[in-house]
Amino acid sequence: MQPTPRLEIRDIERSFEGRRVVDGVSLSIMPGQVTCLLGPSGCGKSTTLRIIAGVDMQDSGTIHVDGQLICDTIYRVPPEGRGIGLMFQDFALFPHLTVAGNVAFGLKGRGPEVRARVEELLRKVGMLGHIDNYPHQLSGGEQQRVALARALAPRPGIMLMDEPFSGLDDRLRDEIRDETLDVLKSEGAAVLLVTHEPAEAMRMADEIALMRDGRIVQRGAPYNIYNAPADRAAAAFFSDINVIRGKVRGALTETAFGHFLAPGVPDGTEVDIVIRPQHLKIDFDRGGRGPNPTATEGTPARGIVQRSRFMGSESLVEFRMDFDGSLLHALVPSVFLPQPGTAMWLMIRRDRCFVFPAA
């Protein structure tokens, strides 16, 4: 018998002024699972979240919690009855309440059980020492921790998070994300996190749902969705990419790096061969001796350095290729700053290339 998802949405659609903002979105999330709804601004992520929370209404589709229908286009459980916790970019703490008062706000009663729950959560988020402080006495990171504790206080079965870390600086953001993930896992909630940052999704998610133009275009574990993108745009969303354009002839595409297989693609069709900069390798051993194909890396190709920049832990080098004049970028570990005009031989990891119909 298959376990029942904590949250399941089926074929949700929503339009505004004739424009389809959410288009047939379906998701299921198990208890203790973190799913990231990832995509660019305006793709429908936040609208989907608001529909699940009950603050917006879908035009069609259904929402289920623990197998029970909570919302379709006729029947609708109000937001406060859905057992869903919410965290948004704005922490929205009550300025007139202490940290303890904010966390206890959604709890019933005032007895020792409430106080124990407040202290338990504040201990988990490292804020027990600030229990009697007011929000204006806290830093942004501390307010974030209190907002998390408040959202978790009623023990919601589902936690919805809409870019909750965007207001924090980079160093603090990583720390708070990791702490938040630990707390959410310990509480066993099903988590749906909305973000436009691939690094955040990769860091936090058990599953990523990549969204574009109102639709989910790919779902999977972070490793799988990164290493097997559904299309060129999906690959480009997670990192910079190089694109080698070619035309298919006899199921082969000719490039500076040799022929690539394109089975089933009609002759004359243009394809894009996509490779990330970290998988474009400089052959330091070959120097100027010319091509010497290998089974793994194919034919080396010569490029002329256009510019190079040190990025901190690595260097980015731009080449103009002799074969067709295209520009390709390579990431090289540590410091490597060759002079413009230097000729170098490049190789590519064929097992790291993706072939897609030309965009």
Rank of each mutant, 00 (worst) to 15 (best):
V34E: 07
V194H: 10
I208D: 08
S15A: 15
R19F: 11
E142N: 03
I51V: 10
P31Q: 09
A100F: 09
V114W: 00
R289Q: 13
D170L: 12
G111P: 06
G290K: 01
V305Y: 08
V125A: 03
K108V: 01
V125E: 02
P95D: 13
L121P: 03
L346D: 06
N224R: 15
L172D: 00
E120W: 01
P229S: 06
R219N: 05
P95K: 14
D213C: 07
T296S: 12
V183G: 10
F260H: 01
V125K: 03
A230P: 00
G106V: 04
N292Q: 12
I241T: 14
D206K: 03
I158Q: 08
Q218V: 09
E197H: 12
Y226P: 05
G101H: 05
L327N: 03
N133R: 15
L192H: 07
L37T: 01
V355H: 00
L27N: 10
M347L: 14
P3A: 13
T98V: 08
L69A: 05
V114E: 01
G54E: 07
F16W: 10
A147Q: 04
A151Q: 07
I216S: 06
L210R: 08
T48M: 11
G268D: 02
F323Y: 14
R20I: 04
T296W: 05
P277N: 11
H130P: 00
V183F: 05
F16V: 06
P40T: 04
L93P: 13
E318Y: 09
R215S: 14
A358V: 03
C71W: 00
S326D: 12
V355A: 01
G140L: 05
R350Y: 08
T62D: 12
A205S: 10
L122H: 02
